[in-house]
């Protein structure tokens, strides 16, 4: 901490106090997210390997632990191609834009009960609004690539995310009803007095989990990039670091939504012995582990089945759950 404070004071010497804190915070979050992506990619490959009776990557570093770094170097060294007749401005903007909303959301998740961290009165609403923006850059990428597979992927992505935002929001709302606040810190603090909300809202937790699986485009809802149908989906025409950006965004999105799930349903930073952020990270990774597990277990749904699953099953169930929660909260107290 003294190192960080020293660094901040040094930057503040020529940029001013406010800008120094802001810059340092952004850099810290970025660094953490980058390392997190490296770790998650490795974890996913290792876990997938063991689910499939393989060992996963083993060559680079002890037990393959440096594989992600080697991959990153490879991606950095790759030639960046721009196909002809693309909508060039949009095409170049999409990979830059794709993780901005995720980054904003990451900074809003409360890590501890400390006063300084993300104490927004409407934190939950901001997060849900921002995470809906990610789809815009996916659509931009699909549309501007001048590739029919990419357009199909982009359009599928838009309709999928719109459909699955709703159950996520409704599931989150039933938590809000119990906690009586949209401030994420207060939601966590409310769980300190009672039990974790996953016990009060098991249906909402399940709906939320299904929703974030779809929002992060992971199997069985990986329709936008269904490899056996659409080759690469919206990122078909992206290569090198531009492709890595989409990759980066996907895994960051997993982390952020996993953390949101942990905050809403699993008590956020609460836990004995260990410090708060460690507990939050552990719970987040538990959610992500299940996401990975599901991905390597199930085949993919068809697009129309996916949509009818959301509109005809998830949303009615979520609404019903919300009504029952409202009755219980206000009637029983």
């Amino acid at each position: 901490m003294t190192l960080l404070t020293g660094l901040r004071d040094w930057i503040a010497g020529f940029l001013g106090e406010f800008l120094a804190t802001w810059l340092l915070g952004a850099a810290l979050i970025m660094t953490f997210l980058a390392f997190n992506v490296l770790f998650l990619v490795l974890a996913e490959r290792k876990l997938a390997g063991h689910f499939q009776r393989r060992v996963g990557p083993m060559e680079v570093g002890p037990h393959g632990s440096l594989q992600s770094i080697a991959d990153m170097i490879k991606l950095l060294g790759k030639q960046i191609l721009t196909p002809v007749a693309t909508d060039r401005f949009v095409y170049l903007l999409a990979p830059l834009m794709v993780f901005l909303p995720t980054l904003c959301v990451a900074s809003l998740i409360p890590l501890t009960g400390a006063e300084a961290f993300a104490n927004q009165p409407y934190g939950l609403l901001v997060i849900i609004a921002l995470s809906g923006v990610t789809v815009l850059s996916i659509f931009m990428a699909g549309w501007s690539s001048n590739n029919k597979y990419a357009v199909l992927g982009g359009m599928r992505s838009v309709s999928q995310v719109i459909a699955y935002e709703i159950p996520v929001l409704l599931a989150a709302l039933s938590v809000v009803m119990i906690a009586q606040t949209t401030n994420l810190r207060q939601i966590v603090e409310a769980q300190a007095n009672t039990h974790w909300y996953v016990l009060y809202q098991p249906i909402a937790a399940l709906l939320f989990f299904i929703g974030i699986t779809a929002e992060t485009n992971r199997a069985p809802f990986d329709i936008p990039e269904a490899e056996s149908e659409l080759v690469g989906g919206f990122h078909t025409e992206y290569s090198g670091m531009r492709f890595a950006m989409f990759f980066f965004a996907e895994y960051t999105n997993m982390l952020v939504l996993g953390a949101l799930g942990a905050t809403l349903f699993l008590g956020g930073w609460l836990g004995p012995w260990l410090p708060g952020p460690v507990w939050l990270l552990l719970k987040t990774y538990a959610v992500i582990f299940v996401l990975i597990w599901v991905r390597w277990t199930f085949p993919r749904l068809r697009f129309d089945q996916l949509m009818s699953f959301a509109w005809k099953l998830l949303i009615p169930v979520a609404l019903l759950n919300l009504v029952i929660t409202a009755i219980l909260v206000h009637g029983v107290g």
């Binding site: 997938a48 499939q52 393989r54 199997a219 069985p220 085949p299 993919r300």
Partner: peptide, 8 residues
């Protein structure tokens, strides 16, 4: 159909 694991 998108299921990776049964193949192995």
């Amino acid at each position: 159909l998108g299921g990776w694991t049964p193949q192995l």
